[in-house]
């Protein structure tokens, strides 16, 4: 049960993109098409799970004073592996993501999970934590890139899905579109979570009577 909690917290309560506003570069920059979004999400998940497991194994061997540099070196090693793998297996994706694959190193989510979770927990929960956070990040990227691709080019996964009469609004796949999409998604998330809170508070009030 607690394992399930470690896995699922990234999707709503501690959603990295919409709640904690961490690691914002990738969700804004590469989400011009669903393919790129999913590719980036999977790459980040791979680094996150691997570095979480490895840091959890090493957690008793790393001296406390220099833990941040140690974490960064571990993360950099796995990012290099992912960078070379993507370059070898999917050159098209590699070109599309460009500089943002190496920049996984400085994605705050990964260092944040290493510092807040993996350095204090056993291997198995750390792996689940990394997997949950990574998948939540992938889902976020997919949602953002889906909206931007649909409105900006009238396609989904490269296939036209809207009537030909629709004029795609180019601004959505240009830089401002990223900011606008994210702003409205975060606002929407705020509205829903406030409604939930009000309902929960009302239930609590009724319960004792």
């Amino acid at each position: 049960m607690s394992n399930w909690k470690e896995f699922s917290k990234g999707f709503w309560a501690e959603n990295p993109t919409f709640r904690l506003v961490l690691g914002m570069c990738a969700p804004l920059a590469i989400t011009t098409s669903v393919k790129n979004g999913v590719g980036m999400g999977v790459s980040t998940t791979a680094v996150l799970v691997a570095s979480n497991i490895w840091i959890s194994i090493l957690r008793n061997a790393i001296p406390n004073q220099i833990r941040i540099p140690c974490f960064i070196v571990v993360i950099a090693a796995f990012t290099t592996i992912v960078d070379l793998s993507v370059h070898a297996f999917s050159p098209v994706l590699y070109d599309a993501l460009g500089i943002f694959i190496p920049l996984i190193v400085v994605n705050c989510i990964i260092l944040g999970r290493a510092e807040a979770f993996a350095s204090k927990n056993q291997i198995w929960p750390s792996a689940l934590d990394g997997l949950g956070m990574g998948l939540a990040f992938t889902v976020n990227l997919t949602i953002i890139s889906g909206i931007r691709e649909l409105i900006g080019s009238g396609q989904l996964l490269g296939r036209p899905v809207v009537p030909p009469a629709y004029q795609p609004s180019l601004v959505m796949i240009l830089p401002p579109g990223g900011f606008i999409t994210l702003a409205f998604l975060i606002a929407g998330m705020n509205v829903i979570s406030r409604r939930l809170e009000i309902r929960r508070a009302a239930e609590r009030k009724e319960a004792p009577q």
Binding site: P176, F179, I180, A183, F184, I186, A187, N190
Partner: peptide, 11 residues
């Protein structure tokens, strides 16, 4: 908070 900041950034 964050949403209005992003809207300004978009503009």
């Amino acid at each position: 908070g964050v949403p209005i900041t992003f809207i300004i950034a978009a503009i």
